Computed example of a mutant assay.
Amino acid sequence: MYTQKSFVLKPAEADKKWFVVDAQDQIVGRLATQIADILRGKLNPKFTYNTDSGDYVVVINADKVKFTGDKWNAKEYNWHTNFTGGIKTRSAKEQLEKHPELIVMEAVKGMLPKNTLGRKQLTKLKVFAGATHDHAAQNPVEYKLK
């Protein structure tokens, strides 16, 4: 009797590409889900869930993203300074003024696995507030969002 073996992608065999995503006038959550799929490699036909088979993503115009509803005022970003009583909070509007790239970074981070593989996949995300980026040498291909 013939049994077919399952395909398992080895990390060395993964063909990693570079993509540029323009975040201008994109809704943050919908943008983040598509970026997370690219980083994980779910668009590749050889996707293996326990292997880092995803591609690199460069996001430009992160300062021109949109939220639906009243999230600009209601959504909060929290962090801790590691000092006693050091919890800090910013609204989404304040975060857009100070660190707009962190809005996209945190949204994508929340959609990746919460383990060492997810942290490794997050390092392949490069976010820039303006229209220029530092990764022209990698010849990234423009990715059209759905």
Rank of each mutant, 00 (worst) to 15 (best):
Met1Glu: 08
Tyr2Gly: 01
Thr3Val: 06
Gln4Phe: 09
Lys5Cys: 07
Lys5Ile: 09
Ser6Trp: 05
Phe7Ala: 12
Val8Trp: 01
Val8His: 05
Leu9Phe: 01
Glu13Trp: 01
Asp15Lys: 10
Lys17Glu: 09
Val20Tyr: 00
Val20Glu: 01
Val21Thr: 04
Val21Pro: 05
Val21Cys: 01
Asp25Leu: 01
Asp25Pro: 01
Gln26Phe: 05
Ile27Asn: 10
Val28Gly: 03
Gly29Lys: 11
Arg30Ser: 01
Leu31Tyr: 06
Thr33Lys: 02
Thr33His: 00
Gln34Phe: 00
Gln34His: 09
Ile35Gly: 09
Ile35Asp: 04
Asp37Phe: 11
Leu39Trp: 08
Lys42Phe: 07
Asn44Lys: 13
Pro45Phe: 03
Lys46Pro: 00
Phe47Ser: 06
Phe47Thr: 03
Thr48Lys: 02
Thr48Arg: 06
Thr48Gln: 06
Thr51Arg: 07
Asp52Asn: 15
Asp52Pro: 14
Gly54Cys: 10
Tyr56Thr: 14
Tyr56Glu: 13
Val57Glu: 04
Val57Ser: 02
Val59Asn: 02
Asn61Gln: 12
Ala62Tyr: 02
Ala62Ser: 15
Asp63His: 09
Asp63Gln: 08
Lys64Ile: 01
Lys64Asp: 06
Val65Thr: 08
Val65Asn: 02
Lys66Asn: 07
Lys66Pro: 02
Lys66His: 05
Phe67Cys: 08
Thr68Pro: 02
Gly69Asp: 04
Gly69His: 03
Lys71Gly: 00
Trp72Arg: 14
Asn73Ser: 08
Asn73Ala: 10
Ala74Val: 01
Lys75His: 09
Lys75Ser: 06
Lys75Ala: 13
Glu76Asn: 05
Tyr77Phe: 11
Asn78Asp: 01
Trp79Tyr: 07
Trp79His: 09
His80Ile: 05
Thr81Lys: 13
Asn82Glu: 12
Phe83Pro: 04
Ile87Val: 05
Lys88Pro: 10
Thr89Ala: 12
Arg90Trp: 09
Arg90Ile: 08
Ser91Cys: 13
Ala92Leu: 10
Lys93Phe: 01
Glu94Gly: 08
Gln95Phe: 03
Gln95Leu: 07
Glu97Asn: 14
Glu97Ile: 15
Glu97Arg: 15
Glu101Met: 11
Glu101Phe: 09
Leu102Thr: 09
Ile103Lys: 03
Ile103Ser: 03
Ile103Leu: 08
Ile103Gly: 07
Ile103Pro: 00
Val104Arg: 11
Val104Thr: 14
Ala107Met: 09
Ala107Arg: 08
Ala107Glu: 04
Val108Phe: 08
Val108Trp: 06
Lys109Arg: 15
Met111Cys: 06
Leu112Lys: 10
Arg119Cys: 03
Arg119Pro: 05
Lys120Arg: 09
Gln121Thr: 05
Thr123Ala: 10
Thr123Leu: 12
Thr123Lys: 15
Lys124Trp: 11
Lys124Ser: 14
Leu125Ala: 03
Leu125Cys: 07
Lys126Glu: 05
Val127Asp: 02
Val127Met: 04
Ala129Ser: 13
Gly130His: 11
Gly130Trp: 07
Ala131Gln: 12
Ala131Asp: 13
His133Cys: 07
Asp134Phe: 01
Ala136Asp: 15
Ala137Pro: 14
Ala137Trp: 12
Gln138Ile: 02
Pro140Asn: 05
Val141His: 11
Val141Cys: 10
Val141Ser: 11
Glu142His: 07
Glu142Cys: 04
Glu142Tyr: 10
Tyr143Asn: 04
Lys144Gln: 15
Lys144Gly: 07
Leu145Ser: 04
Leu145Ala: 03
